[in-house]
């Protein structure tokens, strides 16, 4: 499923003194199969954007009471905002938002704080039951096997955790259970808001490895929101940078992090490897790498062996 957003705008608390524009005319395309990174400060509009993707925030034109406005004489109407996710047109009133939500899984920040089930099994099954076709009850076997697959996909042992209360697990395990509760409905796109927030470095590493495993086997597209430039450089195939409600850049990390000055001006950082490359550049050593640590080390060692030097 491909995501195509055009001219998205959104204002919180419109027509009040608290009105705040969160998105201003955002157009962005996310191809199927990407491991996509969304970067930006708090308040840059990135959270608002991802909440559009599964219809948690609806386009005005998809609302029941929406009426097309006729332009006054001489007035130029803004281009109509549209958002397509695969075959779903989110600007239409007739869109089946339930089906959309099944296809676009969303994991919020600190997802372990949203657990509520008495057992891990029950919590993971929540989404599965909700998305089951109306009128058709899921058979117990189908449910159990789907829940088992999801729990195993996030790297937990089904036999060990299934009957436990989710609140008795460790922090890292809870987060995995929460992710299992989202992927259980087999979404094609998985969106995660800061999946590694609050974890220690090892936990972060494990979560990112998990996402790569899911990306290859479970969900076609993975979208992560992250503040950590190293995380973006190491993991993402494409990235979009949000600032003040607009998309400033939509580039591969390799291209994005060449724009160090622009990022600094926005109060953002660049990955450590990009900093090393910049410092080496000043000494006349040019390293052409994609800013992952592995590629950097490879290129340096190649230079050392006398390969690839101009």
């Amino acid at each position: 499923m491909r995501i195509v957003a055009e001219h998205l705008s959104y204002t919180y608390n419109p027509n009040t003194p608290f009105a705040a524009a969160a998105l201003k005319d955002v157009s962005l395309c996310i191809e199927e199969g990407e491991f996509f990174g969304i970067i930006g400060h708090t308040g840059s509009g990135k959270s608002t954007f991802i909440q559009h993707l599964n219809g948690l925030i609806r386009l005005p034109s998809s609302m029941k009471k929406y009426r097309e406005r006729k332009p006054k004489r001489g007035e130029q109407l803004l281009p109509r905002p549209t958002l397509r996710v695969g075959s779903y047109d989110l600007s239409e009133k007739t869109t089946d938002f339930r089906a959309l939500r099944k296809s676009v899984g969303m994991v919020f920040q600190y997802p372990e704080h949203q657990l509520f089930g008495e057992t891990v099994k029950e919590d993971v099954a929540f989404g599965l039951k909700n998305f089951a076709e109306k009128g058709k009850e899921l058979s117990k076997e189908v449910e159990t096997s789907a829940v088992r697959e999801a729990i195993e996909a996030v790297g937990l042992n089904y036999g060990e955790v299934a009957e436990k209360s989710p609140f008795d697990l460790s922090g890292g395990q809870k987060r995995r259970v929460a992710i299992a509760g989202v992927i259980v409905s087999r979404p094609e796109i998985l969106v995660l808001d800061e999946p590694a927030a609050g974890l220690d470095p090892l936990g972060k590493k494990e979560i990112m490895e998990l996402l790569h495993r899911l990306h290859k086997t479970w969900c076609k597209t993975v979208i992560i929101v992250s503040h950590d430039m190293d995380e973006i450089a190491e993991n993402c195939t494409m990235s979009a940078l949000f600032a003040e409600g607009t998309v400033k850049y939509c580039l591969s990390p390799r291209e994005l992090f060449q724009k160090a000055e622009e990022l600094f001006a926005l109060g953002l950082d660049i990955p450590l490897v990009a900093k090393l490359c910049r410092a080496l550049d000043e000494r006349g050593i040019h390293i052409d790498c994609d800013y992952t640590a592995a590629d950097f080390v490879k290129k340096i060692l190649a230079l050392k062996r006398g390969e690839g030097r101009a």
């Binding site: 948690l56 339930r98 099944k102 919020f108 929540f126 909700n130 509760g181």
Partner: peptide
């Protein structure tokens, strides 16, 4: 804010 976040999370899991 938290209530809204939790509500959104459960909505994303198909809660109605």
């Amino acid at each position: 804010e938290e209530a809204e976040r939790i509500q959104n999370a459960q909505k994303a899991r198909g809660a109605d």
